[in-house]
Design a protein around this nucleic acid. Structure first.
Ligand SMILES: [Mn+2]
Ligand SMILES: [Mn+2]
Ligand SMILES: [Zn+2]
Ligand SMILES: [Zn+2]
Lengths: 211, 211
DNA sequence: TTGTACATGGTAATCATTATCAGGTCAATA
DNA sequence: TATTGACCTGATAATGATTACCATGTACAA
């Protein structure tokens, strides 16, 4: 019944790459790094081995709320804090974790095997971005324009009347299916307005943002 | 810029259905129930409204590790426990939750906005089904360098171009027939690469390993 | 040498969730 | 009253992360 796992070259490289820093990388971040050493490695292999290594207790898998899983080579007990904006994850030490053992009446019949304590908030970087423009808490997008957003905004700036997504597609190098996503983001930032449903125009703020 | 949310029929039914029990349903579990009242409702509408209701603070969205998001109509502060096997989620009360406020030196510059405490284990049902499975163990060859390997590696480190076994033999005290054996072991560890057949060079990992 | 269990790269499929779209609803306004 | 425009809807396509599958490869014990 006992299975022997082999420490293959791929596995070693993945492990070594993970141990290089404390950034709690995702599988695909790790894949990008490992590819420099092993250009022919498959993303599936990275996922597979991260799973195997964590099942074998050699690394930790962090199932932090939200997006991708992240991986941690530090096996000592510690907690994490993540940024709700950029999803960065850092270690955090509790002064003293005196969580009372859960009373059996409160256990609901569960056999408790662990507890995860997870803080969230804004990392230093994102905290500054927020201060700069005083955005509401919900806003999850940085104010910086992406290249795509800038392209869309410039197209709108060059038009004298409200544009539909097809108009924008024609005036930019973007795939039609990317347009609406970009427009939505721009609307959220207040750089684009929709005078009519499915028609968009640049706002004064949007013009400012182009400079 | 203030949004007016309408309490549509769909929204009311979804909310009512959620409040019917304390099972922390997923979006699609809720969809199946709501469909009995509103057979033409779309799954997208359920997702959309759960998102809107939780953004408006009328319900809670639980981003518990693992699979789907779950929803909770109870707004009072409480924690959760989930089953790692069947992903059932129950409420759990902590006797006393005096987590020390995190020291500023430990905050890593974050602006902390909250903390999630989450227990996990096996629910009563799954506890009974549980079966022991052997843990896999990694056949972990030590990455430690033997004296011979170190000698070969140092020879390669001192060369500016890939070496053949004769070059290595000349630069070390080793018998020629031992060389290839050592080189193979080093290759396995990833400390040596073979850019051309029968020529070997040290890798970045190899250089690291020498320190 | 051979059997076999473990691994791999490449790719398709899955799953949960979001985005898009064209068309509705409704209250405020001209 | 007719129009407007923000808000909503169902249907469906698309997305992103992860996993499943498959044919091939490799290590190791017998
Ligand atoms: Mn960590
Ligand atoms: Mn609850
Ligand atoms: Zn951040
Ligand atoms: Zn269970």
């Amino acid at each position: 019944m006992e299975q022997k796992l082999r420490m293959t070259h791929q596995r070693e490289i993945i492990l070594a790459e993970l141990k290089k820093n404390t950034s709690h990388p995702t599988a695909d971040e790790l894949y990008e790094k490992v590819k420099k050493k092993l250009p022919r490695i498959s993303l599936a292999t990275v996922y597979r081995n991260l799973e195997i290594l964590s099942a074998a207790g050699m690394i930790r898998k962090l199932e932090i709320s939200g997006r991708q899983k992240r991986f941690d080579w530090e096996l000592t007990e510690h907690n994490h804090i993540y940024c709700v904006q950029c999803h960065r994850v850092d270690n955090i030490e509790l002064e003293k974790k005196n969580l009372q053992p859960v009373q059996s009446t409160q256990r609901k019949g569960y056999e408790i095997s662990g507890c995860r304590i997870e803080f969230y908030g804004l990392c230093p970087k994102c905290k500054n971005i927020e201060k700069k423009q005083g955005v509401k808490k919900m806003a999850c997008n940085p104010t910086v324009l992406s290249d795509k957003q800038r392209e869309v905004l410039e197209a709108l700036a060059n038009s004298t009347e409200p544009c539909g997504s097809k108009d924008i597609a024609g005036a930019t190098s973007l795939e039609p299916k990317q347009i609406s996503c970009q427009v939505t983001a721009l609307k959220k930032k207040g750089y684009v307005a929709s005078p009519v449903r499915c028609k968009y125009e640049i706002t004064p703020e949007g013009k400012d943002a182009l400079n």
